[in-house]
Design a protein around this nucleic acid. Structure first.
Length: 104
DNA sequence: CTCTTGACGAAAC
DNA sequence: TGTTTCGCCAAGA
């Protein structure tokens, strides 16, 4: 498919690809930027089906509370990826949104 | 067309 | 306060 194909998923890809290293955003913000403010759930659905080895920085997307929504081992993989960029989580597994939130 | 599925979020308990 | 319920909507079957 050519990359100009317009769909919610394509827009989500572009938006997430634009998140700078060391910053994070939320499912809700991605949905908002993609033009569908209440489709945060769909954003998660899209990320859950990313192919292995994707270059998309999916780990920079967190939930409304700055926490990781991924269950099980995914939690650790995302946490590790974030810490590798200098993003630290508190003892409750949440990042400081005021400090790391991506402003566009 | 209907029906299901969710890496969500806000409201209601 | 923490936990549960309910509304949301893109995509695929």
């Amino acid at each position: 498919m050519d990359e100009s194909t317009d769909s919610f998923r394509q827009r989500v890809f572009q938006i997430i690809a634009a998140i700078p290293a060391g910053s994070i955003t939320t499912y809700g913000d991605v949905a908002l930027l993609a033009g569908s403010p209440r489709a945060a759930r769909q954003v998660g659905g899209i990320l859950s089906r990313l192919p292995q080895g994707t270059k998309l920085p999916w780990h920079r997307v967190l939930n409304r509370h700055g926490g990781i929504s991924l269950p099980g081992e995914g939690f650790l993989r995302q946490k590790t990826a974030l810490e590798a960029e200098g993003i630290e989580m508190d003892n409750q597994g949440k990042v400081d949104l005021d400090r790391y939130r991506w402003r566009w």
